[in-house]
Amino acid sequence: MSKLKGWKDIPIGAIVPHGGTAFDYETGSWRSFRPVHDRDKCIDCLDCWFCCPDNAILAEEGKFKGFDMMHCKGCGICAKVCPPKVGAITMKPESDFRE
């Protein structure tokens, strides 16, 4: 997460001066449910990668690699589209991960 800027350092009128700024913006803090992946069950169909609205599924060479937690809002679409017979992604409350 980039450091939040003060009012003197942001563009006038809330102009977004160039593309790609969503990458720097942390939406992961909005998450109340966290996707959890089971490597043993996953068949690397990558339906989750296709369907994620936030590009938060990381894939490499056709294989599922993990979640981008800075951008994952916890919408649960990945768990929903994971084939029922596979069931490799489950949504768990964020509170389960707190100390």
């Binding site: 009012w7 942001i10 009128g13 160039h18």
Partner: peptide
């Protein structure tokens, strides 16, 4: 040559700063 977005969203983390800019 300079594509920009105007009328964008500013949430609780930035809206306040934009209002302060207007005061300036």
């Amino acid at each position: 040559d300079q594509p920009v977005t105007m009328g964008s969203l500013a949430l609780p983390d930035y809206y306040f700063e934009h209002k302060r800019q207007l005061v300036e």
